[in-house]
Amino acid sequence: MIDAAVIRDRFRDRGFIVDEAFATALQLALALEKPLLIEGPAGVGKTESAKVLSDVLDTRLIRLQCYEGLDSLSALYEWNYPRQMLHARLTEADGSTLEQREAQIFSEKFLLKRPLLEAITQEQRPVLLVDEVDRADEAFEAFLLEVLGEWQVTIPELGTIRAQHRPAVILTSNRTRELSDALRRRCLFLWLPYPSLEREIEILHARVPGLSGRLAQQIAQLMQLLRGLPLQKAPGVAESLDWALALMSLHRDHLDAATVEQTIGCVLKVHEDRAVLDAHRQQMMPIVADSPGRVELGGYGLDTDFGIGSVTTPRR
C-alpha cells in the first residue's frame, strides 16, 4: 500500500505539488479501490493529477473525455463492422458452418475496445481518467454508475467480461451541472480549490525551473488578486504557469506595469475581464515593481459590447 507521504514526494518529484488532504484522498482511492471525484474550478490541476498518478504508479493512463451526446457505445466497445463484412465475404466459400462463421465474426479480433472496456481488460491496473463528467448526459452518468459499481461488462455475443484489476479511477468535474447523488456516493470526493499564495509560489518553482523568486512572488500575488475580482473567468494554476513561461521566454525577471499590460492575455481570456482589471488597477500597483501612472489595458470598453444579440459566446 502506498502511503500519503510517499504520494506527496513522488508527485513533487514530477513537479506536481499536492497537500496532505489531496495525498490522503489519493491514498484512500488506491487502498479502498474507489473512484475519486475531483471537483474544482478550471485550471487547478484536476486532469493533470490523473496523468501524474499514472506516472507515479508506472501504469497506463486511459482517458475518457466526456462531452454532450457521449453514448455508452463510444465509451465501451463497438464491433468493427466493415472488417466483419469483409471477413464474411472472404470466407463464404471456405466450407465452414454458419455457427463457425458467426463465432469467428463475433470474436475479440473484431472488437473495438473503447476506454471503459480497455480499462477493465488491462493486465496491470491502469489509471482511468473520466474527464469532465459533468459534460456528459445524465443517461450516460447512470451507465457509468453501473460500470463503476460492477466492474464488469456484458457483450451479448461474447459474454461477461470482468475486470482483472480494478482501475484507479479519477473523475473530474467543473460543476457545469450537478452530478447525481448516486454517483457521488460511490466516489470519494475531493474539492480542489485555487492554491494559497505560498503553494502557488511552490508550484511555479516546481513547474518552471529557473523562475526568479521575485517574479514567482509577483505572479502568485497577482493571481490571488485576480481571483478575488468579479471576473467571468478567473485564472487557474494553468494560467499562472503559462504566464510564467511567457515571461521567462521574454527574459523578464520581474513584473512591471508595462509587462503586465503586454502579457495579460496569458491570464485573462474574456474581453470584459480586462475592464474589470482596469477598474481595480490601484490594487495591482503595489504588486508590480514600478507603476508609471495609468496603464491602458487596451481592448474595447464595456460600452461597445457588440456581441450581445449577434454573436454567440461559448458557455463557461
Partner: peptide, 15 residues
C-alpha cells in the same frame, strides 16, 4: 483528511 473525502460528497459538505 481521511474522513473528509469519504463522508463529504459535495462542495457544500466539504466546506
Amino acid at each position: 483528511d481521511a474522513l473528509r473525502p469519504v463522508l463529504a460528497s459535495t462542495f457544500r459538505d466539504a466546506s
